[in-house]
């Protein structure tokens, strides 16, 4: 019990004294997961809408694949990204294994199906004739897609939250493709794993608290937007 209390005390110490090491880890986590979420929003929403609005043979299989992808195990993603970026691997010439870029790639692969699946569901949840009504008001197909996105923005925000939540808390892929290099690829989750294995529970708890607080803050902001929209 003392261990936990000590840890929490230490955590507050680290947070309020703005420990340089911790701050760096925090910022890198935000940068890697934030970038990955943004990229996954682009691909996820784009492909999600195409699949939602089009009818083609084998569509059901694609939808099932996307839904499966929503639960993609980060370790598996980490494994394959590592293989691809390995010096002798197909993309080895890029030389980006064990860099933040590799972590962004891995996290993007994890977040994209989440955003895609939620987009698909959100767009399909809109009234079926809405698409026709928008076109009947004179919209081009691009304008129609944009209006559909605006109509589905509340569930899409949930997609953003789920995508960001999925990658900020993910550890397997980050540690495999990033390598947890101090001051370079060390993020909140990988640092927590390391400190725990070393028995430095106080620092580990501190990092855990920061991670929780961060997740809470981001979701708080998005929820605020979502609820304000809903009440309008």
């Amino acid at each position: 019990m003392d261990l936990i209390l000590e840890g929490i005390k230490k955590a507050f110490c680290l947070i309020f004294t703005l420990d340089y090491e911790v701050l760096k880890i925090l910022l890198l986590s935000l940068r890697v997961s934030g970038t990955a979420t943004l990229i996954s929003l682009f691909f996820g929403i784009f492909i999600g809408i195409i699949v939602a609005l089009s009818r083609f043979p084998g569509r059901r299989i694609v939808v099932t694949l996307i839904n499966t992808g929503m639960g993609l195990p980060p370790v598996v993603v980490g494994l394959f990204v590592t293989i691809f970026l390995w010096r002798s691997g197909p993309l080895g010439f890029l030389g980006i294994l064990y860099t933040p870029t590799a972590m962004i790639i891995a996290q993007t692969i994890i977040a994209t199906p989440i955003v895609m699946g939620i987009t698909l569901a959100a767009i399909q949840h809109l009234p079926e004739k809405l698409r026709l009504q928008i076109l009947a008001l004179g919209a081009t197909h691009l304008q129609m897609v944009w209006i559909m996105i605006k109509e589905a923005k509340l569930p899409l925000l949930a997609g953003v939250m789920a995508g960001f939540g999925g990658v900020i808390s993910e550890v397997g892929a980050s540690i495999m493709v990033g390598g947890n290099i101090k001051g370079y690829t060390r993020v909140l989750t990988t640092a927590t794993v390391m400190e725990t294995s070393r028995g430095n529970f106080d620092i580990a708890i501190a990092l855990g608290v920061i991670l929780l607080a961060l997740a809470y803050l981001v979701n708080l902001i998005l929820t605020q937007i979502q609820q304000r929209e809903r009440l309008r």
């Binding site: 009234p127 004739k129 809405l130 026709l132 009504q133 076109l135 009947a136 008001l137 004179g138 081009t140 209006i147 605006k150 109509e151």
Partner: peptide, 17 residues
């Protein structure tokens, strides 16, 4: 598109934004 913009179609359900 030019032709479509000369018409307006209204459905049974209001389908408002």
């Amino acid at each position: 598109l030019e032709y479509r913009r000369k018409l307006a179609l209204l459905f049974q359900e209001p389908l408002l934004f």
